[in-house]
Simulated scan of single mutants.
Amino acid sequence: MTSANSERSQWTRLLILAVVAVALAHALDGVAWRSARLLSVNDKDWGRLLRSMGYLPTWGVIALGFWLQQRDHPQRSRYAWALLLGPALSGGVAEVLKLLIRRLRPNPDVFEYVFRPFAEGPLSNRGMGMPSSHVLVAFGGAAVLAQLYPRARGLWYALAAGCAATRVLALGHFLSDTVVAAVLGVMVGQWVWKRADVVPSS
């Protein structure tokens, strides 16, 4: 199998897995909305730590750390740019999709999907939740880190998943908002990695 065919096959498998995950998340939205609640999660140290994975300046600090550490490495700028661009582009994708999908955040009292008409604030995504910006940023960055340090990929994705959990627990998003964001974040992060053409570290 050629490299191109192998890559196409990999993306096909990822797409099938993504569709299944998104469908399952929508099926479980009601259960998560009723059962997974911890409104004080953002007041807890661990909650703030996990949520910060979806905070773009966090990735700016990480990118700067790579750039400083890899001072003698010929690809240090690519390392840094990939780590910054992955989350930044992911966040941009989230903001644009919110304007297009227009699904509002969960109502804490009634489980329902509510969509804002385009006639109401067509350029404002205030109160919209699909997909989660925090989670897209977190997974966009985790996908790049997973390529840079593949032996620790489980850790990077666990931190990003933790960010998603805090958004659901705080009733800031439906479960499906975060799963869609996770899928897109991984895709954006991997796309950025391929464009950066960075050689993985050992």
Rank of each mutant, 00 (worst) to 15 (best):
A4F: 10
A4L: 14
N5H: 15
Q10F: 15
Q10E: 14
W11S: 11
T12R: 13
L14K: 12
L15G: 12
I16V: 15
V19N: 02
V20E: 09
V22Q: 09
A25L: 06
H26G: 14
L28G: 06
L28E: 10
D29Y: 08
R34S: 14
S35Y: 14
L38Y: 11
S40K: 08
D43V: 05
G47L: 03
R48Q: 15
L49K: 00
G54W: 00
W59H: 06
G60V: 12
G60I: 11
V61T: 07
I62Y: 13
I62F: 15
A63K: 11
A63W: 09
R71Q: 14
H73N: 13
H73K: 01
P74V: 07
Q75T: 05
Q75W: 02
Q75I: 02
S77T: 13
A82S: 08
L85K: 01
L89E: 06
S90A: 12
V96S: 11
L97C: 01
K98C: 12
K98R: 14
L99M: 10
I101Y: 02
I101C: 04
R102W: 06
L104Q: 15
R105P: 07
P106S: 07
P106I: 08
P106V: 06
P108C: 10
D109C: 01
E112I: 12
R116P: 02
E120A: 13
E120G: 02
G121V: 09
P122S: 07
R126P: 01
G127Y: 02
M128Q: 13
S132Y: 05
S132A: 11
S133H: 08
H134G: 01
L136S: 14
V137L: 06
A138T: 09
A138Q: 09
G140W: 00
G141W: 00
Y149L: 13
R153F: 01
W156C: 05
A158S: 13
A160L: 06
A160S: 03
A161Y: 04
G162D: 00
C163H: 08
A165G: 10
A165W: 07
T166Q: 02
V168Y: 05
L169E: 04
L171R: 13
G172K: 13
G172Y: 09
H173S: 07
F174H: 14
S176Y: 06
S176K: 04
D177L: 08
V179C: 04
V180H: 05
V180L: 15
A182E: 03
V183L: 02
L184Y: 05
V186G: 11
V188I: 12
V188W: 06
V192N: 04
V192A: 06
W193S: 05
W193H: 01
W193D: 00
R195L: 10
D197P: 03
D197A: 14
V198G: 09
P200V: 12
P200L: 12
P200D: 11
S201G: 15
